[in-house]
């Protein structure tokens, strides 16, 4: 016998509470919005909103403090890990994360990020890698793929003249102070779910005091790549992932058994 049923409406998905009701300034289809939402969802799930301090960078995500409904500070260009270090050392009970793009973290902020990892600062870094400088109009970044056209390499990046892309996750994974270094992508629903788990693991690493944690997220820039939003996601899957392989580059053994 089948039990009688009455349908009940359930909210499956809604805007996270750690978001403000402000419309973002990002271009249509930019995955910065997805990365923001994942961070907000993780902070909601862990109930950390009242004790989290974010550090906003310079770049497209310079206004991140307007979109998160939590305490935020704005750092000078590339100096977010240095600022986060100071805040974490003065307020060790707070959860500190920085949100940085590749122009900020891998270019001008290279020294700060390397030394923050080398010192094993107990902070979490969300690193958005879209292979280009977005805010300033699509110039070549340290992460630009070989042969990729940008406004400052209009014939494609010539590796003999301008060198090769920098792989930050692999480099930071060699640091003894790093606790959790992974690379994920934001090009489809499956990878977005995996990225969210990685962000959760990074915050868990910090909560357990296991050292520096970074999640590198391969992201799209439809405007400066000059493609439609869905083609930009295809570009991540087909062109970026072969150069920036996804994976766990460093996971402290204490985290190995942790399921989130």
């Amino acid at each position: 016998m089948v039990a009688p049923t009455t349908p009940e409406t359930k909210v499956v998905f809604k805007r996270p509470e750690s978001f403000t009701d402000v419309t973002t300034h990002y271009c249509p289809g930019c995955t910065h919005g997805v990365a923001h939402r994942l961070v907000a969802e993780v902070i909601d799930e862990m109930g950390l909103r009242e004790k989290t301090i974010g550090v906003a960078p310079v770049g497209c995500s310079v206004f991140a403090y307007k979109y998160f409904n939590m305490d935020f500070v704005e750092a000078a260009h590339g100096r977010a890990p240095a600022m986060a270090t100071g805040i974490k050392r003065v307020l060790p009970q707070k959860t500190i994360f920085t949100y940085q793009g590749d122009g900020d973290l891998a270019s001008i902020g290279m020294a700060e990020i390397m030394h923050a990892a080398a010192r094993g600062e107990n902070i979490s870094v969300i690193f958005i890698n879209n292979a280009i400088f977005g805010m300033t109009g699509g110039q070549m970044a340290p992460t630009t793929l070989p042969g990729m056209k940008t406004t400052s390499s209009p014939f494609g990046r010539d590796v003999e003249l301008t060198g090769f892309p920098i792989r930050m996750s692999e480099m930071l994974a060699t640091m003894d102070g790093a606790g959790y270094i992974v690379r994920r992508s934001l090009h489809d629903a499956k990878h977005i779910r995996q990225s969210k788990k990685a962000i959760r693991m990074a915050i868990e690493t910090q909560e357990r005091g296991l050292g520096f944690s970074m999640v590198e997220l391969l992201s799209s820039c439809p405007t400066n790549w000059k493609v439609a939003p869905d083609e930009a996601l295809k570009f991540i899957a087909e062109s970026m992932i072969p150069v920036f392989p996804l994976g766990d580059y460093k996971v402290r053994p204490e985290l190995a058994g942790l399921r989130v």
Partner: peptide, 11 residues
Amino acid sequence: PDAAITVYREV
């Protein structure tokens, strides 16, 4: 990317 969608389901 803009968290604009709310999803409902009848269970």
